[in-house]
């Protein structure tokens, strides 16, 4: 199970500089806007709407901000590794430096959730996370995120 169907190499942002959650989400929204030719503001608003329900920080320094965008025709992911961890109000209180943004079509239904679960699965692996944090460039990160290494015994 890999993430190649929702992530392109151009959507990987290595060493993203941002001071806080809002700024990080803005940067990633801008990238998503470029990939989908949608309005950057719309995307950012969508993400912030979701954050209002509760932080998408899932622990271990990882956040998976997500939202649904009307008119989108496919699942779109953006990955970012921050140059330094930012406060994200996660459940475990740890600051976040690994972010995976997921945008889904309005009617994505279970596909949306399945994609979220897949992302969580890849990022929950401590080894993968460590390698991601150590990777130098977008290509290395993309390979890590899309290679199908683990046989997921779970």
């Amino acid at each position: 199970m890999d993430l190649s169907d929702l992530l392109v190499i151009d959507a990987v942002l290595p060493r993203l500089k941002s001071a806080n959650k809002k700024q990080a989400l803005q940067e990633m929204a801008a990238k998503a806007a470029a990939l989908t030719s949608r309005d950057e503001r719309d995307i950012f608003e969508t993400l912030m709407q979701r954050e209002k329900l509760g932080s998408t920080g899932v622990g271990h320094g990882v956040a998976i901000p997500h939202g649904k965008l009307a008119g989108l025709d496919r699942l779109v992911g953006v990955f970012a590794l921050l140059d330094r961890p930012i406060d994200f109000d996660s459940l475990d209180g740890e600051p976040v430096d690994v972010m995976f943004l997921l945008l889904a079509p309005e009617s994505a239904g279970a596909d949306h959730l399945k994609a979220l679960a897949r992302i969580a699965r890849v990022l929950r692996d401590d080894e993968t996370a460590a390698k991601l944090r150590a990777a130098d460039d977008a290509a290395a990160m993309y390979t890590l995120l899309t290679e199908n290494v683990r046989s997921d015994a779970a």
């Binding site: 209002k52 899932v58 622990g59 459940l91 929950r124």
Partner: peptide, 23 residues
Amino acid sequence: RTAFGEFAVAPDASLSDLATFYE
């Protein structure tokens, strides 16, 4: 056990909004 895969939920968030969001 890692609390991974759990999203925080604000206590004052509307349950209906949350449910609609995830269908």
